[in-house]
Amino acid sequence: MALTDELWSAIEPVYDEILAHPFLAGLTDGTLPRQAFRHFVVQDSHYLRDYARALAVCAARAPHEADVRAFADDAVGALAAEQEMHGEFLTAFGESAEQAAAEPVLPTTLAYTSYLLATVHGGSFAEAVAAVLPCYWIYARVGEELLAKSSPDPLYAKWIATYGDEAFQSVVRRVLDLTDRLGEEISPAERRRAVRHFSTTSRYEWMFWDAAWRGETWPV
């Protein structure tokens, strides 16, 4: 079995729960409270800064030059998304990126990024790729799913279009091809660890949307 097939099979129930989440339903029908979307944007700005660091570690550990360049480009792209797209959303809320950056990193964001960074530094290259993969792949699948529906809210429609866009989809296909190449080279034990990391960070993706929906804060 191709590694990507095994990975997706492991998280199909998680993905079904993601698609069913009221945050995504509210994006497409336009009923998502703006405060929930703002929560998501602010925490995603924090997340993407550390995700870029995780991708940079993947670049440093990649054995082939093409993969070094690709992950380095993706790290730069993650920061560009944080600065550009999130900046536009924050402007719509009458706020600045500086104001958002001053807000605290909340529990789910911190847990997710801490797990990512620990895995990319402490695991193998294949494990690192598996850990960062859900942020590529799940967003691509969600983007495809939501693009057909879009949203009556222009702000939400813009977010949906970003991840349904063919340019983003092609980047994801490149990472999936790499994942399958790695799957042919790694040991059964390393493969099991890769599946475990992929499953964990996929669950964090659901938790990230859920945290925004709930308006998560630090309890004390």
Results as ranks from 00 to 15, higher is better:
Arg38Glu: 07
Arg53Val: 14
Ala78Ile: 01
Ala102His: 10
Ala111Gln: 10
Arg34Val: 14
Ala128Ile: 00
Ala111Trp: 05
Leu110Ser: 14
His39Ser: 03
Gly87Lys: 04
Leu55Ser: 08
Ala59Ile: 09
Ala66Gln: 14
His121Cys: 12
Asp67Arg: 10
Gly122Glu: 08
Phe23Ala: 02
Thr108Gln: 02
Leu106Asp: 07
His64Ile: 12
His86Pro: 05
Ala59Arg: 00
Tyr15Arg: 13
Glu103Thr: 11
Tyr51Glu: 05
Ala100Met: 06
Asp44Arg: 07
Leu116Tyr: 04
Val105His: 09
Glu103Gly: 06
Phe89His: 09
Ala54Phe: 02
Ala59Gln: 04
Pro33Ser: 01
Tyr115Val: 11
Tyr112Gln: 07
Leu90Lys: 01
Ala78Pro: 01
Val120His: 03
Ala130Cys: 06
Ala75Arg: 04
Cys58Ser: 03
Tyr115Asp: 15
Gly77Lys: 04
Gly77Phe: 04
Glu103Phe: 11
Pro63Gly: 11
Ala56Ile: 02
Val120Arg: 05
Phe37Trp: 09
Pro107Tyr: 01
Asp50Pro: 10
Thr119Glu: 12
Asp73Cys: 12
Tyr115Gln: 11
Ala118Val: 10
Gln35Trp: 14
Asp29Gln: 05
Gly30Ala: 03
His64Glu: 15
Phe37Lys: 06
Glu17Tyr: 10
Gly87Arg: 04
Ala118Tyr: 09
Arg34Phe: 15
His39Pro: 02
Thr113Ile: 07
Val105Phe: 09
Ala80Ile: 13
Ala54Tyr: 01
Leu117Cys: 07
Ala60Met: 05
Leu24Thr: 05
Ala102Val: 06
Val57Asp: 01
Phe40Pro: 02
Ala92Tyr: 15
Gly123Asn: 11
Leu79Arg: 01
